[in-house]
Amino acid sequence: MFSFHSALPARRGLLYVALAATAWGTAGAAAALLFRHSGLGPLALTFWRSLGGAAVLLAVHPFTGGRRRSPRPAPARILLNGLGLTLFQAAYFLAVRYTGLAVATVVTLGSAPVLVAVGGRLLMTERLGRAGVSAVVGAVAGLAVLVLGGGRDAGAEPLGLAWALTSAAGYAAITLATRHRARTGTPDDPAATTLWSFTVCAICLFPFALAEGLLPAGGGALPATLALLGYLATVPTALAYALYFAGAAVIRAATASVIALIEPLSAMVIAAAVLDEPLTPAALLGTAVLLLSVAALARNELRAT
């Protein structure tokens, strides 16, 4: 069973972030399927994901023991994380709707490390070092190969790309805030932080989801829609974000962001296996470059601790 103790060793922090990123990669595929069959729009889908994730975390929170180990998250911390999650998730699903799953995922996660590295340098004086800079450049290069060589010219819509960059900004804000809190004070309980953050996210999105269309379409697709919404609320939401907040508190912000690039890799594999999207030579090359970059940055992190 996973431990959400605030004093995690770096190795376990790296593992938690990697597991979270792998789970996140399945969220885009689930959203793509829901867009096809449920009748839900991006904002309604994000609302149900957040509400369901909060409900799952509320149900399991008494069994995590988090309140005995870490202080209750401060209201400002809850609000910042909640707004960051709202921006990250809603903008990502909007990007998937307008520019497709592959492009939205790789642009969001490709630009996030750059934003995090700049923010970490400006706000927390974090130094990547030569190895870290090389790993970030390699990761972005791998993502560029995936985007430019993927053979999806019609998918790179400017509006979708803008939403992907907006999502990356929300992701970067969450990552930097988590790391800053861990460096300047006692880290919050990750499970409680995630629970309250998703509650804020659901509250913020409710009026927009209501205007967009809150309820899924009925008929024969309803059971599959409910099953996909249940999965979306548990694995890539409640579990993945709790793991991510726990891991991000004990490794550098830029490291967490680059390791999270595993998400587009897992999304690509699922797209090929479930959505019948072919794996092109460019996709395989980009995958190899990304994996090498993630491994190099993880090794650099372990050496620094």
Rank of each mutant, 00 (worst) to 15 (best):
V145K: 04
F2M: 13
H61P: 00
P281Y: 08
T305A: 14
R97W: 10
G66H: 03
L226V: 13
A139D: 05
A20G: 11
P223M: 07
L85A: 11
W196Q: 05
A164V: 07
L146G: 06
A249E: 12
A282D: 07
A211Q: 11
A131M: 06
G28M: 06
A267P: 04
V116I: 14
A282K: 09
A191F: 02
Y98W: 14
V235W: 12
A95C: 09
L19I: 15
I174F: 06
S293Y: 05
H180S: 11
G66N: 11
A10V: 15
L87P: 03
L14P: 03
A295F: 07
V269M: 13
T225Q: 07
P223D: 10
L261V: 13
N81P: 00
P187L: 03
T108M: 15
R49E: 08
C204N: 00
G142C: 08
R152L: 09
A18Q: 06
G13P: 04
L176H: 05
E157Q: 14
D188M: 02
A144W: 03
G84K: 10
F208E: 02
A253P: 03
W196M: 03
L290Q: 01
A272M: 01
V289D: 10
R121W: 14
L215M: 12
V269F: 13
L34I: 08
A295M: 06
R130S: 12
W163E: 05
A202S: 14
A256S: 15
A233D: 05
L205V: 13
I259D: 00
A271S: 15
P207I: 10
M124K: 02
L290N: 02
R152N: 09
P236I: 01
C204R: 01
L226A: 10
F198A: 03
I203T: 14
P71G: 11
W48T: 08
A271D: 12
G13A: 09
P9S: 07
L291I: 09
L83W: 06
L15C: 05
P71H: 04
A139G: 15
P73N: 08
A271L: 05
A282L: 09
L226T: 08
A211L: 14
A154N: 10
A31M: 10
R181V: 14
F35E: 11
A112Y: 03
Y171D: 00
L302W: 02
V269N: 02
I203V: 15
A117E: 00
G230E: 10
S111T: 15
G149D: 08
V250Y: 04
G219D: 05
S6Y: 04
L165A: 10
G39C: 10
R303M: 07
A238Q: 11
L146A: 07
L109E: 04
P113F: 07
L210N: 02
P223L: 05
L232W: 04
T194F: 01
T105C: 05
F206S: 11
A139W: 03
G52S: 10
V269W: 11
A296T: 14
L8F: 00
L226M: 12
P190M: 08
R49K: 06
L228Q: 09
S50Y: 00
T287W: 02
V250A: 04
F35R: 08
L285E: 04
L291W: 03
L146M: 15
A288G: 10
T287V: 07
S266W: 06
T186S: 11
V145A: 14
R299A: 15
E263V: 11
G220N: 12
A254H: 12
L58R: 01
I203M: 11
G149Y: 09
L297G: 02
G218N: 07
A90L: 01
L80I: 15
L115W: 09
